[in-house]
Amino acid sequence: MSLLEVKQLKVWDSSTEQVLVANSSFQLAKGHCLAIVGESGSGKSLTCKAIMRLNQAKVQQSGSIVLDGVDLSLLNKRAMRGYRGKRICMIMQNGMRAFNPSRPVGAYLGEVLARHYDWSKEEKLTRIGAAMTSVGLKDPASVMRSYPYELSGGMLQRVMIALSIVMEPDVIIADEPTTALDAVTQFEVMEQLAKLRNRLDCAMIFVSHDLHAVKRIANDVLVMKDGEIIERGTAADFFTRARHPYTRQLITAKQSLSRQFNQLMGGASVAQG
């Protein structure tokens, strides 16, 4: 029984009539994680935004997006807004740019929560505080007071994860959540994402071109190229029995890279992170 079912999703630019994502269909079961892999411009992000109906005005879409029996593409704006943030949470690529630069983080979180729950101020604070502690933010109160520029990219990434813990969504869409981070922080954020999935038992769409991360977290993998899904299958299959030449190329590139790295590091096991 799938939780999210995307059928015949087509995304195109209405000003140039250029098709950006061609007829993609995929399903996502509860508790599963689907990774979408591909180079930049392959339509990964557009697909994610299309699920939340957040593409720019000139970018149009057709097809059905069914979440838990409700077709999101038929909802009116107001109802769709109720889904955003509450049922589907997004975790953005670059934490440093994902928050309004002129507002403290806490004010923003409070506003989002007020949109979806009628909790008292104290309740909001306790819940958010607990979530922040659980993702390793040691001093929630000071984080809430801070402006985005005062926090690091990794911390802001965790703030987004903490927000999705509080929101308890059905689906989390993480759009290249680790790309903008350094290696150590990447590892920690991946840890948190994996924990988040186990904890909420929600479904996750994980967009990345980091095959390490994909291997770690995904059950299923989609490979996109030029707006089309060229390969799909379970994560295990993906790394061993890829059919499409492009996928094989991706995997070999990654393998040769890590082999080279291992050689450079004297064959030590450092590269396993």
């Binding site: 935004k49 939340m52 109720g82 509450k86 589907i88 953005m92 506003e111």
Partner: peptide, 25 residues
């Protein structure tokens, strides 16, 4: 076109309020 606008929308903030935030910046 900034990311924070996308994130605000993705969190379900109504368009009118997003516009106000953008205007302020």
């Amino acid at each position: 076109n900034e990311d924070y606008v996308l994130y605000e929308r993705a969190c379900g903030i109504p368009e009118s309020i997003v516009t106000l935030h953008v205007l302020r910046n």
